[in-house]
Design a protein around this nucleic acid. Structure first.
Lengths: 239, 239
DNA sequence: CGGTTGTTTGAACTGATTCAATCTGTGTGG
DNA sequence: CCACACAGATTGAATCAGTTCAAACAACCG
């Protein structure tokens, strides 16, 4: 990672950690120090075990490209995806074991560092705490919004809401730029708490209603205001 | 609050902040310092507006008795409760506005302090950060479990799971001690993402199956192992 | 007593699941 | 270049879990 200090570009493609942190308001020197932390750059293949539930989660992760998912399973083994991490987002280390596992949605590049190294930097710079606290609060807000989504919205709104959130978190220029939909219908089902069969019908519905157009995995938002209304999507919770 | 320094008991009933923090592993001097922070002791009436969504949340809260809920509403106004706070738990301040509102489930005593005062203590004692980080992670784990609950479990399991979690978080001695059920059926519906009518049928079902016995608001777990199985309740996520 | 809030029950309806089959696109090896 | 395998998408029919609407009932309280 040392090479990056001069060029401003780290090895591999994707989002730069330092730039992301700086853009989020962090002191550039601190951002640099975090980027210079010892770490591996891991290429994660989609839908293969990456981190299992119930094991210690003593790593910091930063997504440079692709998408990671946190998932749990109920007693009968049905999977529920409980959180996503887009490029520029990360997963903080935690005490003890994590109840959730981690898998990639699509092929992803992830920086993985040791919790011990991360904590050392955190201890040396108390002003980092407030910064990470507000990142954590955003994640909390997203969880709450997902709970509303699963608990209170009908199947169509749930899928529409996920598409809206995905578009915004992918930093798309909506509605001009099409969304390269990263999810299989099975994954959308695992996020929105339904079956893939129904997701398929809902997507067809959304297209029939003229809210989206699909070409393969590509989704174009042809009526963004109406899409937001159907999804009851208020992007405020994403900041 | 000064009076409490000597007696170890603060004004009003309920859980002591200092004792709770100390029991959670915090240095007793720090626990005392947090307890001595300027604050009001507020009595919150159930199901009346307490804190509205969309306003700044520049307060720390600590629940001494009763139960607080965080709630959101979808576009059509249907409420979803996204988190609960039992005695000994709290709500941390946050930057900007909160997307959720706060209401009491039952009459509650809540210590309410200013974020500025709280942050001052936090800044003076960096070792507090790790402590609060692990509290936040528990809340995150609970959110994730709730997502699994809403997304993947059927109506019976959802209600059963909530009852199990409530019993454990109330620190009951299960199954001997009966749970003084704090929720109306409407509130259970708002937590588990269904209608109060169905909650009523589910509760009747659970009783018919011999998993619980009800007397007014009191619930006795007559077959705790089977109850846990039906709910697929693994209390690990509560620590 | 009347008013309010919460619980219980019934009947009709509907959104989503389940199961199963078919279709499509993509990659692989012969 | 074709045959085959495989993962994902699509469709239909039957079923069912949970909603909706409406009404009755119970408990509590000033």
């Amino acid at each position: 990672m040392q090479a990056s200090r001069r060029s401003g570009q780290t090895a591999g493609s994707g989002v730069s950690l330092r730039d992301t942190l700086a853009a989020a308001g962090l002191n550039p020197d601190l951002a640099q120090e975090l980027e210079d932390m010892p770490h591996k750059l891991v290429h994660v293949e989609p839908r293969r075990p990456f981190r299992d539930p119930g094991v210690p989660r003593d790593e910091v992760m930063f997504v440079r490209s692709g998408i990671l998912s946190k998932f749990k399973a109920d007693a009968t083994g049905r999977r529920q995806i409980v959180a996503l991490r887009f490029p520029g987002e990360g997963i903080l280390p935690r005490e003890g074991t994590a109840s959730y596992g981690i898998q990639a949605i699509v092929r992803s590049e992830v920086m993985v560092g040791k919790a011990a190294d991360f904590d050392r930097i955190l201890d040396a710079h108390p002003e980092l705490q407030g910064f990470f606290r507000s990142l954590i609060q955003r994640d909390e807000d997203i969880s709450y919004e997902w709970l509303v989504n699963c608990g209170r919205r009908d199947s169509t709104a749930r899928v529409a809401h996920l598409l809206c959130e995905t578009a915004v978190r992918s930093r798309l220029n909506i509605p001009d730029e099409p969304l390269q939909n990263p999810f299989t219908q099975q994954q959308i089902a695992e996020i929105t708490g339904q079956t893939s069969v129904n997701v398929n019908r809902v997507l067809a519905d959304l297209e029939r209603q003229g809210l989206i157009e699909r070409a393969g995995r590509e989704i174009l938002f042809t009526d963004w205001p109406e899409m937001r209304r159907v999804a009851s999507f208020q992007p405020g919770y994403l900041e």
